[in-house]
Design a protein around this nucleic acid. Structure first.
Lengths: 330, 330
DNA sequence: CTGAAAGCGCTTACAG
DNA sequence: CTGAAAGCGCTTACAG
């Protein structure tokens, strides 16, 4: 690590002069400035920051989905309002000799950390807490210890609303493409589905619920299974929008029109839901607001203020488009 | 701004002790540690970072589009590989008493800056250069001074390929929804369109080209105009995917089926293109790769290495889906 | 486990 | 325009 003194020596000037060049002061001769700038560049000088860069770390497990953008937008808004700088990174898919995501974060000591769809090991929890770095989990993957602040969406109510919508249209045989069991949000959606059926007096049939990952391949695969079964459902609730789009493909392949022969409801309301053919009826998850709420909690925590609440679920809502209709022959 | 000494005084300990607490050293009594942590929190202490946080600034004009995510992904990849931390912010829509985006960036002295769809005023250019902060413009909005490094896509070739594809299907009356004239990429796409027509011996008809913003409203509005004109086009090349989706709506409203009555080609290949109804034929723009290339240039520049090239255009490519077909009656 | 003393990297105020 | 001197915020090495 080079110091100002090193640079000064190499440039044949004093440290104050180098300091002035670095800080863009006017009282340095042009020729001196140039020489010093050259040496700074050459020697790869990096300043030890004197102003604290107030950072807000936003950590995704994966940076793939369209999903992520809405979260970034919400976090950026609050970060900017609070004078913080938003640092975006991903924790997944990086094993081997490298520093763990947590070590990287510890190294730059952010004012706070936002974790997206994360499982926190208790070791990670302990490290974060020990260093007094406040954090909030957005859309927690699994159960969290009671005192970990988190922001989610009302997934159960969403599953309920989606299924109720189909029931109200007259559907009775309603299938579901479930997400992975390890994810809280996925289990809640399935339970909401089940609960809606039961309170409508429709018997829950486990054969109509098949699970997999939250992607379009699963929607396609599970969709084909459901649509080719003897008593095929007239409607399917997909655990998320990507699965719903996989279902679209399966329906096309099975020769079923949406919504005439098959109704489909998704979950998330990603941008593409609106543009699917036909536009997808889905449950909107307010990701931008969720991220903003999480950021505000973390900022409060960082400033030693007690946030009004540290466990929040924001409301989901049904967005009706054109992928749902009464069942055939209704 | 609180100092360690302030905290020490308030906690009734010495500064070294506070320093130890901050750095997670083991040799502090648990009770002392707790008391000091409490005071640190209470007084909102922020350290003046001693380790330099190596930052890469990624500045968007707007943080809205699905677009942005692919760029973030490319930049994050390189940032991580190079041990930099990716800072995401937006420059647009923030006038008034606040610091300009540039001042904010100057304040944290990043290793480099990546600007997306930006116009750089010469004052901004001068400031960045004076401080020796290297920067690269991704998808430059307008003409840049000769020595500003930039990474773009081959927009002209893309316009050419889109139009050629339609010509090869047999279309002769091909409309275009143009983007704003102020954007370089938009003008290049229009020129590519025109060039393809001319080299196929089809006369360029200015009445078939109508412009507006790069959004779906423009696609809809301009689409209706084109489709309701006396000699309506059998195919339309939209300046970007959002416009193409607006066109979809216009076609629906005009009672035209895609692709049977009207062929549509978009530009960008956003995720939603694949899921549109029908899936959109479009020109793919390799945003992730563009961002990664830009990040690599900025890192080289920051380390005083001469990058292999400072003006790059990455290749676009035609992605054929289901929105294009031979013209009716062909 | 604690803190006085020395030291580090940088900046500021000012004499020339 | 330059740099010797003093100062700032923090850390380190070490005596108790």
């Amino acid at each position: 690590m080079k110091t100002l003194a090193d640079i000064a020596r190499a440039a044949g000037v004093s440290t104050p002069t180098v300091s002035k060049v670095l800080n863009g002061r006017a009282d340095v001769a042009a020729s001196t400035r140039e020489r010093v700038e050259g040496i700074l560049r050459e020697q790869g000088y990096r300043r030890r920051a004197t102003q604290p860069v107030a950072l807000l770390d936003l950590v995704f497990h994966e940076l793939t989905s369209a999903w992520a953008m809405e979260i970034i937008r919400g976090a950026e808004q609050v970060a900017h309002d609070e004078g913080l700088n938003l640092l975006v990174s991903k924790s997944g898919g990086r094993e081997g000799g490298e520093l763990s995501w947590l070590e990287t974060i510890m190294a730059h000591r952010p004012a706070g950390v936002l974790l997206v769809v994360a499982d926190l090991t208790s070791a990670e929890y302990a490290q974060l807490t020990a260093r007094g770095i406040p954090f909030v989990v957005i859309d927690p993957a699994g159960e969290l210890d009671h005192d970990v602040p988190s922001v989610g969406a009302t997934n159960w109510q969403g599953g309920l609303a989606a299924t109720r919508h189909l029931l109200e249209l007259g559907h009775r045989r309603i299938g579901m493409v479930a997400g992975p069991d390890r994810l809280l949000c996925s289990r809640a959606r399935v339970d909401g589905y089940r609960s809606a059926l039961e309170s409508a007096g429709v018997t829950y049939d486990p054969a109509l619920v098949r699970g997999g990952e939250f992607n379009q391949e699963t929607g396609y695969k599970v969709g084909l299974e459901l649509l080719r079964s003897r008593q095929r459902p007239t409607a399917v609730f997909a655990g998320n929008d990507l699965q719903a789009l996989g279902l679209y493909e399966a329906a096309r392949e099975a020769g079923l029109r949406i919504p005439e022969d098959l109704s489909v409801v998704g979950f998330d309301d990603m941008v593409l839901a609106r543009w699917a053919g036909p536009p997808l009826t889905t449950i909107r998850q307010p990701l931008t607001e969720m991220a903003a709420a999480a950021a505000r909690i973390v900022v409060d925590l960082a400033r030693g203020k007690e946030p009004t609440a540290t466990r929040i679920e924001l409301a989901t809502s049904l967005v009706e488009r054109s992928s749902t209709a009464p069942p055939p022959g209704a």
